[in-house]
Write a protein that binds this DNA or RNA. Structure first.
Ligand SMILES: [Mn+2]
Ligand SMILES: [Mn+2]
Ligand SMILES: [Zn+2]
Ligand SMILES: [Zn+2]
Lengths: 158, 158
DNA sequence: CACGTTGTTGCGAATGGTTCCCATTACCCC
DNA sequence: GGGGTAATGGGAACCATTCGCAACAACGTG
């Protein structure tokens, strides 16, 4: 019994498409915006605002952190970007096209991206018994990864 | 197929038992500590440090917030208290004897306590496919509660 | 290709939540 | 009751994020 997941927000394939969309919405194609988008489309997911700021500043040194936050906010409004909370630290941002849930290890901080289907069991249980519809994208489900479990198990016996 | 959940940390039945344990551990039975414990044992769960501070200050007006944090931290070390993150705001604290997971509504902020068994489906899926052992106690699983879903569904059609 | 409108930026200050530091206080064992 | 030391009040520091504002820069229009 598979569950219908929400449709992925329409997917802009590249920086220019997104900037076009920004314009449609009355916004402007700023250089900081463009560079930020380039970094978001580049490899490597789950970057914090500060990490993105550093990457952007490698190209345009005086883009301010608050500009990064503002642009991320705007891009989220447009459905291009989302953020997730993977634990105690700062939020992490990634393209909204990558739709997945998050499992995050409390011991080592490692984050696993999990297909939404993995959460179907819980989704069904919560819906059936409490009428609650879970959404595992925004906050990670915490726990302990395989490596840490092995390490901890090894430490437990002599 | 039920899953063995971790044993509940041994349960002190009252304020005095906890204070005895504090002493055993080399700590002292402070008045702020006692009043905080009284508030934690009182009805109402999921209180923030600030809420607890207000309650404590109703009895002992100049207990400082930082003292509340320090005592909560100490009580967590002793296994008497735990905290949970239910969304964006401050953490909430409750007795460790109440062992449950959390479901928190992103629309209205309502929090449901869910028996750990509710998470068995996800636990099994994560363990089997990723070797990841989830723990739904520390971070809530977000989503939308029945009431908000109904409200949002009603708003969707005319 | 000026020009004006208005969205955006840099910067710093403010915020919320939590932790840290330190001089003073107060438990509690003798 | 006095001494050793855990705990406290107070405030500063901290981290992640948001705000306010004056200067700036996109970009549609002429
Ligand atoms: Mn968030
Ligand atoms: Mn926590
Ligand atoms: Zn790990
Ligand atoms: Zn709700």
């Amino acid at each position: 019994m598979t569950v219908e997941h929400r449709p992925a927000p329409r997917a802009p394939v590249g920086v220019d498409e997104v900037l076009a969309r920004v314009r449609e919405a009355g916004g402007r194609a700023t250089t900081s915006r463009r560079i930020l988008l380039e970094r978001l489309f580049a490899e490597g997911s789950h970057k914090t605002a500060e990490e993105l700021a550093h990457e952007v500043q490698a190209v345009a040194p005086d883009v301010h952190l608050s500009t990064i936050y503002r642009n991320l906010e705007e891009l989220e409004r447009l459905g291009v970007v989302t953020h997730a909370h993977l634990g105690h630290g700062p939020a992490t941002y990634h393209l909204a096209t990558e739709t997945h849930g998050h499992l995050s290890c409390e011991s080592c901080g490692a984050t696993l991206e999990a297909p939404l289907g993995l959460f179907d069991g819980l989704a069904e249980a919560a819906r059936e018994s409490l009428g609650f519809e879970i959404d595992p994208r925004h906050f990670a489900v915490l726990g302990h990864c395989a490596a840490c479990r092995a390490r901890e198990a090894a430490a437990a016996d002599g």
